[in-house]
C-alpha cells in the first residue's frame, strides 16, 4: 500500500463542470414515463409510529417508482427529535416532470398506520385525496371515506411476521396507485432486502395487493389534468407544517 494515487491522465473531453452547466443533468432522474402514464405532481405521505418500518416503506416505494417505473421521485423523511419521539413519516413526490420543490405540500395519498398519524396529517390531504389507514390501529378515522385494511393483523396472522406490516401496506399502495406496477415493487423489494427475509416480504406484498383488490374497490382515480386548478389549490402550508 503506497500513498501515490494512480489516476490516469484525463482522457475524456467532457468535464464534470461542463455537464453541470448544460441545464438539467443527463445523470439521474427518470425519463419520467413510468407506465406510459403521464403524471402531474403526485404527493404521498406514509406515516405511523417508529418501529413500523415507515422509512423502509418510503425507500422501497420511492425506489420502485424511480427505478422500476422511471418516474421522477423525491423522497424525504422525518429526522431528529420528531423521529425519535415515536412518530415516523416518509414523504414522496412523484412526477413525469423534473421535480423542483422536493417536499410535499398538499397530499394526494396519505397512508396512516397509527391514530396519531391519521389525526395530525389528515389536514394536509387535498379535497379529493385518498386516505388509507390500518383498520385496527386507527379507531377514529378522521374521514368517513377512508380506505381501511387491518395491515398489522394481516401481517401477524397471515404472514406470521408482525414486522412485515409495512410491506403489506406497500402491497395495498401498489394496488391503489393507478400508475404503479406490482412487479416493479417486487423487484425493488428483492433488490433491497436481505435474502433471509425476502420470501416472507414478497408474501406480505402479494397479500396486501390481493386484499386491497378484494376489499377496496377500484384503484384511485387520478385527477384529470386541468380538471381542478392544481396551481390555485396549492397553498402555502409552511406555517402549519412546523414539524417538517
Amino acid at each position: 500500500m503506497t500513498g501515490a494515487p494512480k489516476d490516469k491522465a484525463p482522457a475524456k473531453p467532457k468535464s464534470a463542470t461542463a455537464k453541470a452547466v448544460n441545464g438539467k443533468m443527463a445523470n439521474g432522474n427518470g425519463n419520467g414515463n413510468g407506465n406510459g402514464q403521464t403524471l402531474a405532481r403526485y404527493e404521498i405521505r406514509l406515516s405511523g409510529l417508529g418501529g413500523q418500518g415507515i422509512l423502509t416503506m418510503g425507500k422501497l416505494l420511492g425506489q420502485a417508482l424511480a427505478i422500476g417505473h422511471g418516474y421522477y421521485v423525491t423522497q424525504t423523511q422525518s429526522y431528529g427529535p420528531e423521529a425519535r419521539g415515536g412518530a415516523s413519516r416518509a414523504d414522496l413526490v412523484v412526477s413525469s416532470e423534473p421535480i423542483s420543490y422536493p417536499k410535499t405540500e398538499y397530499l394526494d395519498l396519505l397512508v396512516a398506520l397509527s391514530q396519531e398519524a391519521a389525526a395530525s396529517y389528515y389536514s394536509y390531504l387535498k379535497p379529493r385525496g385518498a386516505l388509507l389507514i390500518d383498520a385496527d390501529l386507527v379507531r377514529q378515522s378522521p374521514s368517513s371515506v377512508a380506505l381501511a385494511l387491518p395491515f398489522t393483523r394481516l401481517a401477524r396472522e397471515k404472514v406470521g411476521v408482525p414486522q412485515a406490516t409495512n410491506v403489506v401496506a406497500l402491497g395495498a399502495v401498489a394496488y391503489l396507485l393507478p400508475f404503479a406496477r406490482i412487479e416493479a415493487m417486487r423487484k425493488s423489494l428483492k433488490e433491497s432486502l436481505p435474502e433471509k427475509i425476502c420470501d416472507a416480504n414478497i408474501k406480505a406484498l402479494n397479500l396486501g395487493y390481493q386484499e386491497a383488490k378484494k376489499r377496496l374497490g377500484e384503484p384511485i382515480a387520478l385527477p384529470d389534468p386541468g380538471e381542478d386548478d392544481v396551481q390555485a389549490a396549492r397553498m402555502d402550508l409552511t406555517e402549519i407544517m412546523t414539524e417538517d
Binding site: D7, A9, K12, N27, G28, G62, V73, T74, T76, Q77
Partner: peptide
Amino acid sequence: ITAHTREKIELPEPGDFEVFS
C-alpha cells in the same frame, strides 16, 4: 434538504467524468 432527499441517480462509471490529479 439536499443531503437528506432521496432521488434516483445513475451510478458513475469509469470514464463518465474527466478526473484530474
